[in-house]
């Protein structure tokens, strides 16, 4: 696995495909890693496909500043600078990664050619009670400290509609990520910055969606109808925020359609990517 030095922070990334082709940048959710996008590297192989562990997540180090949406967005842009990718990119974000993608669009609209939001955060206050409990002092830290052989499979099971997706590799990766020194602090910083026990806060969502509306891009909105983390009813709010967007609701699919329905996912996003001439 490859690492970048981004302003002194060690960032893990994975890059495949044709370096000359337009870049597709894949962003994972809270507490996750680039493994959540793994099959798309091959399926979108005719692009320059870049996935990375966002600062403080996966096996990447954290940024010095407290982790917020703007800090994550800035971190990803800086990582792309380090990779020498200065052309407009196709952004795809899952869950928290969707919110980061939208944030990236607002901070550098010229660098974004299309937007694909997959079970994205930002479209409603409802979120799994497990994430809401993180906001409770002490309890949150205790929960994150206890990601082990017993709890990790349970967490993984909430992410997929099909239990066969909960493989030993995924469980081991989740435990490995949870043992990173920056894992718990960054997780809690983000969870508390974006919401509380009552759910995802409204202020940043409405503000972000309003700023995003100034930069329309070809957009694809995707959800899995069995998402237990962010309910699929949020797709309606997403469509309202992106009236020009195309959308697709995957059946019998959980929080990560990009790995639970990889082939269909790739087929779905290809026309959106093709919409922007190189």
């Amino acid at each position: 696995m490859n690492y970048l030095d981004v302003r002194g922070t060690r960032i893990r990334f994975h890059e495949t495909g044709d370096p000359a082709a337009p870049a597709v940048v894949l962003l994972h959710g809270i507490g996750r890693s680039l493994e959540d996008w793994w099959p798309q590297h091959e399926l979108l192989g005719d692009y320059r496909v870049i996935s990375l562990d966002m600062p403080g997540f996966g096996l990447s180090q954290r940024m010095p500043a407290p982790t917020t949406l703007p800090v994550l967005a800035e971190g990803v842009w800086a990582a792309l600078d380090t990779l020498g990718e200065s052309r407009p990119v196709h952004l795809m974000g899952n869950s928290l990664g969707g919110a980061v993608s939208m944030q990236m669009l607002t901070t550098a609209p010229d660098r974004v050619s299309t937007l694909t939001l997959v079970n994205s955060a930002g479209f409603g206050k409802e979120v799994t009670v497990a994430l809401r409990m993180l906001a409770v002092p002490v309890l949150g830290r205790q929960m994150l400290r206890r990601i082990d052989r017993w709890t990790a499979p349970r967490v993984e099971r909430t992410l997929f509609a099909d239990r066969a997706m909960v493989t030993r590799e995924r469980i081991e990766m989740a435990i490995r990520i949870a043992r990173q020194p920056d894992f718990a602090p960054v997780y809690l910083e983000v969870a508390r910055a974006l919401g509380g026990f009552r759910g995802v806060a409204a202020a940043w969502r409405t503000d972000l969606l309003q700023r995003v509306s100034a930069h329309p891009r070809p957009t694809m909105l995707i959800w899995g109808d069995c998402d237990l983390i962010l309910p699929c009813a949020h797709l309606a709010a997403a469509q309202a925020a992106f009236p020009h967007a195309r959308s697709h609701m995957f059946a019998r699919t959980g929080h990560m359609p990009q790995i639970e329905r990889p082939e269909e996912f790739a087929e779905l996003v290809r026309p959106v990517l093709a919409e922007v001439a190189v």
């Binding site: 109808d225 699929c232 609701m249 995957f250 059946a251 019998r252 699919t253």
Partner: peptide, 12 residues
């Protein structure tokens, strides 16, 4: 007897 919520996705 109560039916579970109807799920739209993937059905005709």
């Amino acid at each position: 007897m109560r039916l579970p919520e109807y799920r739209f996705a993937g059905r005709t």
